[in-house]
Design a protein around this nucleic acid. Structure first.
Lengths: 211, 211
DNA sequence: ACCTGAACACCGTTCAAGT
DNA sequence: ACCTGAACACCGTTCAAGT
């Protein structure tokens, strides 16, 4: 029952009893654990089931296929990051442009780092999943928050807000991924921390008018 | 024979006769074709062998495993892009900062687009391969070219060239990937084309001193 | 209502036999 | 020297049988 045809990556059925709720939680947690310890390539359904303490059959009762397991983990992670970003945008409303750039960069970067080393593996997970709809949703939320933020700037005005919003979000997400995804982000992370706010500030100044 | 232990993703043996040289070329081409038509998930060794007109056994004589096939295709693609970038850097040497930003962005973006739609699939390929060494090499080449370019700017000087080089390369690669990787880059591609030069120019101005 | 695990289809890889 | 393809191990998924 309760197969969701519009989104086959969603859990197959909603648990109705306490026992199965715990089962789903255990499977979810096991997926993440196996992902962190063994990596995506070595993540097999058998291994996840073992770690969760259930049989493969049980797993397939709640998740229609392997990808649904990964999708669930990725989804939760992305929601946490976008929520942190939204909160930062609200907090920074009405600030000056420089503070906005610094605050936004800081909030996004810290949200990503808070979930390290999950962030790293999850880039590989996202790459082999059909995430178009999920990403669209996340991007829409992020863009809405950033747009609102930029529109509220105390000392600047933007003629083409949608374009600037797109650009800022793309710099943020693109550069952070580029750094976190790689093996040894020790020194590059420090550089990113220092340069990303400068990039954003410089770009925002360049495309805004004093108000 | 001729297994390369330092890099197990490399071809297993060097062809010594015309027949096998053609075989390797056919396998290489078939890999790329299957990748484009069927996508990474549906790319199986059998399918590639079929398309190449050889048996699986023959394929395994030249490529030690499936990943070696993908690695070869990715490697060639990355080399082409980095060469285009290097050439642009040489061409722009001694120019003014604004022209440099525009020229570099244009060259990199066009190199990526020239290989579309290969670019899109290859992001997914890179994600599930051990590409650390390959990427390190590419990044080193790109950074060297960009560093030389920036140092030659007619109207600007940089105090911390390594950091600025890192930042420019990260913006470039990160934002372009962010856009090309997605499903429908029609309008976002136009925005990227317009905003990326502005970003780079604004950043470079911000971290440089007039000379 | 929930769980089990043997059974099936399919894929990556090998190797004995061919030319 | 190069090629073939049946055979093997392993993984994702199902389903008849259990509680």
């Amino acid at each position: 029952m309760a197969v969701v045809p519009s989104d086959p990556l969603k859990p197959r059925k909603t648990p109705r009893q306490a026992r199965s709720t715990a089962t789903v939680a255990a499977i979810f947690e096991a997926t993440f654990q196996v992902l962190l310890s063994d990596g995506l390539v070595k993540l097999t359904t058998t291994r996840v089931a073992e770690r969760a303490g259930v049989s493969v059959g049980t797993m397939y009762q709640y998740f229609p296929h392997k990808e649904a397991l990964l999708y669930a983990v990725l989804e939760q992670y992305l929601y946490e990051v976008v929520i942190a970003t939204e909160e930062a945008c609200v907090r920074l409303e009405g600030a000056r442009l420089g503070e906005m750039a610094d605050g936004l960069v800081h909030a996004y970067l810290e949200a990503k780092l808070r979930h390290m080393p999950g962030s790293r593996v999850l880039y590989t997970v996202a790459a082999e999943l059909d995430t178009d709809d999920l990403i669209d949703d996340i991007v829409r939320r992020a863009d809405q928050a950033i747009k609102r933020l930029l529109a509220s700037a105390a000392d600047a005005h933007f003629d083409d807000l949608p374009t600037v919003t797109f650009a800022v979000r793309t710099i943020l997400v693109g550069t952070v991924r580029e750094v976190l995804e790689k093996e040894a982000p020790v020194s590059s992370l420090a550089m990113l921390r220092a340069q990303l706010p400068i990039m954003c500030r410089a770009y925002l100044m360049a495309v805004s008018r004093r108000a």
